[in-house]
């Protein structure tokens, strides 16, 4: 931007601080070249005023940041650090953090595409899959009596199906996909089962239905106490071609540790949505409750 004309102009006006100090500005060699510093002469009072303003702003922001930290940190943490005693309940804190979760779920839903397939692997890439039942593993005695109940279907009836019927009615599909747990581990496993979409086609839900509530009544708590597990699943995910109602793991029928005889495999969801030992599917218009969402986790869990 500097022209010769302006150079002469500034040189001819010696009222700037001192012409001996200043060096004629050099034109930068390229767009990327570092520019010379911008020196200026400021009256001391003005500089003091700027400094006071900026330090006050800095100090009040620091206080605000500490307050925000105290407000946002979990109670357990603050109690351990000795900042608070007893139970303090800040409903607004829950509101803000839950709001963040909702925004995050909305982003996940916007990213989801029914046509986007998840990566598949070869059988040589299979990794061990641990039994991650949160409570005790159920006693396998439920398996011979097991039936799948469907509610909220278009016929208005409640349907009860046994595993033999499901295996002969639907075509089995195989896939080697990754299961990702909210805890941070993942495993590549070889699943076989029928597509959720095929079940939806055979027993269509009511026209208003947008959600499935999937339940396992045989789930147990940590001390072996009955603790039904339930997840919400949006029907868009249920229609995904890689969302299976799995009956086999690694070429063998599911064992009790992995949810015999029927479990959900939705690779586009975190592992906690991949409910084991499904006993009931209910189609609903509104979003149903979710076991882990009630415990402070995301509701959508799209990955």
């Amino acid at each position: 931007m500097t022209t010769n004309l302006e150079d002469e102009h500034s040189a001819s006006e010696p009222e700037t601080i001192s012409s001996t100090e200043s060096v004629p500005p050099r034109k930068p060699a390229s767009f990327f070249e570092e520019r010379p510093p911008q020196a200026m002469e400021v009256a001391p009072q003005l500089l003091r005023r700027w400094t006071r303003r900026d330090l006050l702003l800095f100090g009040s922001s620091a206080i605000a940041a500490v307050a925000a930290g105290g407000f946002l940190l979990p109670q357990t943490t603050l109690k351990r650090l000795g900042f608070i005693q007893g139970n303090k309940n800040w409903p607004k804190q829950e509101f803000l953090l839950n709001r963040t979760l909702r925004i995050d779920d909305d982003v996940a839903e916007a990213l989801y595409s029914r046509n986007r397939l998840v990566p598949t692997y070869t059988k040589s890439q299979i990794t061990p899959l641990k039994n991650n039942y949160n409570g005790a593993t159920p006693d396998p005695s439920y398996i011979p009596e097991w039936r799948l109940t469907l509610d909220g279907i278009a016929s208005g009836l409640s349907v009860s199906l046994d595993i033999r019927h499901l295996l002969v009615s639907f075509q089995l599909h195989e896939q080697v996909t990754r299961l990702v747990c909210v805890e941070g581990w993942s495993a590549i496993a070889w699943w076989a089962g029928f597509r959720f979409e095929d079940l939806l086609r055979a027993y269509p839900p009511t026209s208003q239905a947008k959600w499935a509530r999937i339940e396992s009544s045989v789930n147990l708590g940590p001390w072996g106490n009955p603790d039904p597990y339930f997840v919400s699943l949006d029907l868009s995910t249920a229609h995904h071609p890689q969302t299976l109602l799995a009956t086999h793991l690694n070429g063998k029928p599911l064992t009790v540790e992995h949810g015999a005889p029927l479990r959900l495999i939705a690779p586009v969801k975190l592992g906690l949505k991949n409910i084991k030992a499904i006993t009931r599917i209910t189609y609903t218009k509104d979003e149903p409750a979710d076991y882990w969402a009630k415990r402070g986790y995301s509701q959508y869990d799209g990955i």
Partner: peptide, 9 residues
Amino acid sequence: DHEPIATLT
């Protein structure tokens, strides 16, 4: 860019 030294005095 034009004036290496500005003055606010």
